[in-house]
Amino acid sequence: MLDVRDLNVFRGSTHVLKDVSFRVEEGELAALIGANGAGKSTTLLTLSGLLPPRSGTAVFTNDGEPLDLTRASSEKIVRAGLIQCPEGRQIFQSLSVSENLAMGAYTRRDRAGIKQSLEEVYELFPILAERANLHAGSLSGGEQMMLAIGRALLAQPRMLLLDEPSLGLAPLVVEKIFDVIARLKSTGVTIFLIEQNAAMALDIADVAYVMETGRIVLSGTGSELANNDRVRQSYLGVAA
């Protein structure tokens, strides 16, 4: 579904992504783990068309229709069903909760379908229905994360890019978010998950990649990496 090859991305004069290649198959949950500043978020911004790569290809294929992510506009990428739930949630604080969700459905025109998606999101996160008319900025951190995911779901993702969904949240909320991710996967949404919380990510991932200073240095199934000595030492806090 997603095929990234030899991607090189610069931010200013800094060479952030170096020959990055990876694949995510349809229906899979793939995780990208790595330390802060390794280039994980840059990878996602590039996939969403917000950063033009210097070289390399990134092709997203949905229903047999390939889309070259290195050339397409962010608008077109969203319309193709590749949806990003960005780092730090980035909900629209000054908009109401329901307006935030409406923004998620911005590219959609099927009123009935939008209404149904909205009901599904409210069922998934009942607190959002309760707070529908409040300013999103007044929500707690966990509620804002639910809103960010709900907003992404309203776009009807075929593939969801999640950037650090556990960041700064209480353990109970993190568990809830990961439950939702697992549920999404079971409904057939392909997921590409970026996490610093490597243990949780590897636990639910089908495949995983480890990124260090802009390069993919390791890859394997979630359990393979969870048992890899290097990963255990560097990311799972297990002494050698």
């Binding site: 969403s48 068309g49 917000l50 962010s74 608008e75 990428i77 969203v78 319309r79 949806i83 990003q84 960005p86 980035q90 909900i91 629209f92 923004m103 998620g104 911005y106 590219t107 907003r151 776009a155």
Partner: peptide, 8 residues
């Protein structure tokens, strides 16, 4: 940025 990620 967030608006662009919504497809605006």
């Amino acid at each position: 940025t967030a608006a662009r990620l919504m497809g605006v």
